[in-house]
């Protein structure tokens, strides 16, 4: 089982992964030229980190910022506050309490990422950071970070609201009177 977050309905594990697809980074950079991508790919802000209530036992502040930045780069939702991505770091910290080897894996990975961008991850440009992450696709650390970010992010009710997933419905009487069949764009 992978189940770092308490058990995903369909666990993900390393050996099952399809070969990583090469990404079209030129296209991505072209997208950046339109102006909106600077916002989409907004780097994690140090200010937000300082105001965040850290409660970390294993992740130090520097690693925490890198991991939060990677989480946003993996699943960038411009509408989300940095605090949602810091929650991912909080969850990683909880995993470390149970998995002693995880700390070393992630610290090595953060070092490797920083080296890819010339030493200072947070000072690097977003395209540089994306290229660096691409270079670790397929690694154990990448699979862990992708899976953990998904399990943290897409179980977060703030993210649910953003994407339109309404969560528990029984307390509202289900959807029988609340739009289970309200689709309006199909041809009659």
């Amino acid at each position: 089982m992978t189940a770092d977050g308490g058990g995903p309905p369909f666990p993900l594990s390393e050996a099952d992964q399809l070969p990583a697809e090469r990404r079209e980074f030129l296209k991505l950079l072209g997208f950046a030229a339109t102006g909106s991508a600077a916002f989409v790919l907004r780097p994690i802000s140090l200010g937000a980190a300082e105001s965040n209530d850290w409660d970390l036992g294993f992740v130090d502040a520097e690693l925490g910022l890198i991991l939060a930045s990677v989480a946003r780069l993996l699943f960038p939702h411009p509408e989300l506050k940095d605090s949602v991505y810091f929650q991912v770091v909080q969850d990683i910290d909880s995993d470390m309490a149970r998995r002693p080897a995880l700390g070393g894996l992630l610290r090595d990975s953060a070092t490797a990422l920083a080296e890819q961008v010339g030493g200072d991850w947070l000072a690097a440009s977003v395209p540089e950071q994306i290229s660096a992450i691409e270079s670790i696709e397929g690694s154990e650390a990448f699979f862990y970070l992708r899976n953990r970010t998904i399990e943290s992010l897409y179980r977060n009710t703030e993210v649910w609201r953003l994407v339109g997933y309404e969560g528990s419905s029984i307390e509202h009487g289900g959807y029988i009177n609340r739009g289970f069949d309200d689709i309006d764009w199909l041809d009659p």
């Binding site: 995903p8 309905p9 993900l12 990583a20 990404r23 790919l41 699943f75 696709e137 998904i150």
Partner: peptide, 19 residues
């Protein structure tokens, strides 16, 4: 649920388009 789509629509997917 969103988590399952995130994991498996593209089993190694990430980045702006995927998000």
């Amino acid at each position: 649920a969103p988590e399952i789509f995130a994991k498996f629509l593209q089993p190694t997917g990430w980045g702006p388009e995927y998000a």
